[in-house]
Structure formats: C-alpha cells, structure tokens
Design a protein around this nucleic acid. Structure first.
Lengths: 328, 328
DNA sequence: CTGAAAGCGCTAACAA
DNA sequence: TTGTTAGCGCTTTCAG
C-alpha cells in the first residue's frame, strides 16, 4: 500500500506537504505541488479515507437508508444519491430496512455513527428515527423534517385533476394507498381541497400498494360511478385496469386511469398509463446537496430547509373523454 | 461520542480489555466481559469502524459496483448483497458506473482501496477491471473470473426449450441481446448446442435490450416463420409482443414468447410473460458469501470458485400450443 | 486474564 | 512555504 510517507520520500518533501498538496493545494508552492502530484500519480497513491476521516473528524461518506432497494422508486432515488455523492467525492453506504419500522431506527443509529450524515428515504417510523441520528445531519425524503426533499404531491394532484377535467370528467375516484403513507395523506388533502371546484372527488381505500390492492379497489371504483380514477401508484393502476376489464369494462373508454410515480412500468403496460411523476434522480441529487450543505455547518445550526420538486404528468393511453360526454 | 476510554473508565478496566471483551470475548473472564458489555450498552457505545479498520488492516466494508442501480435486475442483486452484508456485519459502499466501461475501472480502483473486497456485477470491461482491484478479493457476478457467481444460462435455455417443445413448437427464434453481453453469448451457445434435437433454432440479432429493440426484432421474427420466440430479457419481450400485435398477430396464439430474467414486469404486462429467471437476491447473497470466505485468506490463495445458481421457468400467459399443432 | 504501549495513515496545530 | 509533532479510536503485541 502506498502511503503519504512513500510519496513524501520520493518527492523529497515532508508528509504534511504531501497532505496539503493533495487536499489544500493553495497552501503549497506551485512547483512543489506539481512535483508531489506527479509523484503521487506515478506511485498510484490513493488516500486512505478511513485514516483521513479518523483524524479530521469527517468520514467522507454518507448513509442512505431505504425501505426497499428493489422497489423501482427507491432504486431511482438511490441512483440519484450515488450520482450526487460522486460529484462531491463522497462514498455512499447503502442500507435496506426491508420495510420494517423497528429495524429502521437501529440501522439508522449505526449508519449515522459511521458517516457524516444520512439520507432517509420514505421513513416508516420517523419519530423513532430522529433521535437515532445522534445529532448527525439527516435529510428526509418524502416526509417532513428539518431537512427534507419531496415531490409536489399537491401539484401532481392538480395536474391530474386538470387533465381529467379538461377531458370532461366530472366524477373522479381516488384509489388511496396505505393509511400510514405520508404521500397518500398529502394527496388526499389536495384532492379534498379541490373537491367541488367543478369536479366531485370520491375517496376510496386505503388499499395495499400492490396489484392485488388495485384489483381489490375495482368494485368500489365501479360502484362510485366515477368516470376516471387516480391511483396511489402505477402498480395499483395496473391491478385496477386488469380487474375493471375482467368486469367487462374498457379502459380508457369506460374508465380513465391515472397512475402515480410514472415508473418505467407505466410506459410498458397496455394500455400505457397516464401517470403523475417526478424526477426521482433529482430527488436523490438534491438530498445530497442538502446534506453537503449541512455537513460542516455547526451541528443544529441553520434553518429548516425543504426542497419541493415539481410534479410532471405523462399523458399516455389510459385516459380519454368520458362516455357521458361523447355524442353517442 | 462514546469511545473505548469512556467504557473502560466506567467499567473500571483498561481500554484493551474493553476492546477484547467486545471483539474477542473468549479472551476475557466471563464476569469482566459481562460488566463491560453492559456498560457499553448503557453508554450507547458504538465502535468506530474507521478506527478499527485502520488498526486492524480490515475496513469492515465491501464495495458493490453495478452498471445501473435503477435497472431492476441490479437492484435485486444489490438488495441481496446488502442483506448478506448485514448478516456478516459488513457495510456496503455502492457505486454506479452508469454503463460506462471507461468509468468502471476507475471506480473499482478507488472502491477496492477503501474496502476489504468488491463485488462487480455484470462488468462492461472486465479485462481492465482485474488489475484495478489491486489484489483485493473481487467477486464477479454474471461473468467469468477467479471468484464468480452467475445463473445457469444453459439450464435456463434448456427449460425454455423443453417448455416450448412440450407445447409442440418446432421452430423457435432467439431474439438476442447486445453483442458484448456475456449472458447472451452463453445463451446462444446453449441454443446452438440444442439445435437439431427435435427443434430448429433461428438466431436473430443482436438487438438493443430495450422495448424498441424488441419491436425492431418483430419483422425478423415473423420472417423466420418461428412459432415461438425466446428473448434476451423481459423488456425486449414486451417490445416484441407489442410490435407483433400491431402486425395483426396474436400472442400467444400466433406466436409464443418467452422472456428472460423474470422481473416483476413479467407478471404485470398483458399477456403476462412466461419467463426464465433466477433468484437474484440469492445471487447477491452468494457473492457476499464468496467474498467473506476470501477476505482474511492470504491474498491470491485459494482456488477459483464459481457458484452457478439454478434457473427457473415461470409459465404464464404468453406461451401456448402453436397453431400448426392444433386441430384446425 | 489484564494492562501498558505502540502504532495503523492521515490531518492540523504549531514552529521554523 | 514547509517541517515537526501530536494525536483521531481502535487493535494488538508484549509484559506482568
């Protein structure tokens, strides 16, 4: 292993000069710096992050805690986080809580200890988590917190409603997700607020955020006499479409469906789903940005910072004019 | 921050006893050990991995390098890796090479330096990678190497062929993936070897591993007069199904389609895809197992070890008896 | 079985 | 501008 001592000897300087030349270039004479840098490169020197962190009090790594890495939603966020971290020369420790709230705080505790800060995506037990961070900066994705990144759920709901309204829909069902979901609560609130303004919104659920959950909502949706449904996510939409078709109805002719999240799934199914989404990688990148901004700042300093990313609407095949509005 | 010194003082022992009590329990008197352990717990002591690694020469972390974390295939493998690492009390540094071969070796170099070993999933430039690992244990997923974990592509091909043959198909097209793909090469070899034994196999491609790639293969598939197609992966299968239907053919009645990878996508599309798969999380878990086995062993020691996980076949709606074999 | 002491590789005062 | 030195928190000889 090549260490600062090797580089120092070869370059004819002291180890501190090597350290400075590599991490605080301004404090070293140009000539010296260039020599050190080239020697370091020639020897293939790679600084040891653990040692640097030990001394400097910063580890040069951040933690990322997700409920399920195999979920495309979190996978996309994770990709944004790793990309953002790379730009800041940070390492990323990734941990998966397997959707278990009781595991979450424990993992967070050990993660916080080994890193300069943690990004907590869609926490399942935020109250227990906050103290577990042990004073380290904590950026929360998709939920409230002093440092938070989220997508504009209210804006997304507005986009979906406006799209459906412009097609002529007047009675719209919302197929809600798990009761504990923060996003779901935000969307319900936005839908509630929008109700009456030209559309009636029928709230259904909660339903599990799965294909079966969507299928299980079909009877309620049909009974609601809505001409369009907005679902908690794309997977639920797929289940709803499937079950509704089994009842002899057509999508979108008899029922328009709008999904949420705009995962790649939305474009692949038949009919392709109109879906509300957001740039998930940007969510990850912004989370890193927030974290980097707070790392190094005095602990507890700084005001709460919340980043809200705009929602998008991808219009595909699953929405159209309601039958009642057509001339037939 | 609680350190060994705090625990030592509180427990009335020296710091070395604390260290031993926690990491080499056998070398400490039961009574002493219990006292130390309970004090450590009471104080909320968490060992500093960086410091431990610095001294011991092991970091307690492994690296995971994937081409694309947002790809469900790698997300599943990554989930298995993090789960396996947790069982061994290892941290996981995750890095995404964004499918860029030239970035891969560079990332691997820095990753290898900060970890006890690296798992390299589906390398895009393995030859450049091997030296970059710098002597650290390197487990390769889905490609050859001294330490390798993969799925049984030949077995998967055999399962698909046997399934189609039993349905009565005699002429089968393979919609191949990228020329650089190792899995694709293995499958082609297996198909080639199987050709003539009761079935004719028509090799097509290479095609990009995307929906458009699958759609672009439709004409070739139709022209091949095959009654069934096996595709490089599920996404390609979706594209193929879509394009074939646009040409007025039905799936599976006019063309049976078998996908590869058995991602969750396969069960969600219409028709649900029959697909060859494997337990991807197990791939990740086995990779960790291999790595742990090699870490601590003398560098370069030990024979090459390759783990081959069995392929599975999930039969769904996209395959059926060919028209030519039916009484019509 | 336990303690004292020597560093792992690096950075950050403090001197020069 | 550069060098010397003192550790960061921990593990691991080496004594006792």
């Amino acid at each position: 292993m090549v260490t600062v001592r090797d580089v120092a000897r070869e370059a004819g300087v002291s180890i501190s000069t090597v350290s400075r030349a590599l991490s605080v270039p301004d404090k070293v004479a140009v000539e010296t710096r260039e020599r050190v840098v080239s020697v370091a490169a020639a020897l293939g020197y790679q600084p040891n992050r653990a040692a640097a962190g030990l001394r400097a009090g910063r580890t040069g790594t951040v933690g990322l805690l997700v409920p399920d890495l195999a979920n495309p939603y979190f996978a996309a966020v994770a990709k944004g986080v790793t990309a953002g971290a790379r730009e800041h020369a940070l390492g990323v420790f990734v941990v998966d809580s397997e959707e278990k709230p009781e595991v979450e705080a424990e993992l967070l505790r050990s993660l916080a200890h080994q890193t300069d800060g943690v990004i907590l995506a869609s926490p399942r037990a935020l109250d227990a988590d906050l103290p577990a961070a042990g004073g380290k900066p904590l950026v929360v994705v998709n939920q409230g917190g002093p440092l938070a990144v989220g997508t504009d759920n209210a804006g997304g709901v507005a986009l979906a409603l406006e799209h459906l309204r412009s097609l002529g829909h007047q009675r719209i069902a919302y197929v809600g997700g798990p009761a504990a979901s923060w996003s779901d609560a935000q969307r319900r609130a936005a839908l509630h607020a929008a109700g009456g303004a030209g559309v009636e919104v029928v709230m259904l659920g909660p339903f599990p955020p799965t294909v079966d959950g969507g299928a299980g909502a079909a009877d309620d949706v049909v009974a609601s006499e809505a001409t369009a449904a907005i679902t908690f996510n794309d997977v639920v939409a797929v289940g709803l479409v499937r079950a509704v078709r089994e009842r002899g109805l057509r999508v979108p002719e008899d029922l328009s469906v709008v999904g949420f999240d705009d995962t790649f799934l939305a474009a692949l199914v038949t009919p392709a789903l109109t879906s509300v989404g957001a740039d998930l990688r940007e969510v990850g990148r912004r989370a890193i940005g927030l974290l980097v901004g707070r790392i190094g700042a005095r602990a507890g300093s700084g005001a709460a910072t919340r980043v809200l990313l705009p929602a998008t609407l991808a219009v595909r095949e699953s929405t159209t004019t309601p039958r009642t509005a057509r001339e037939d």
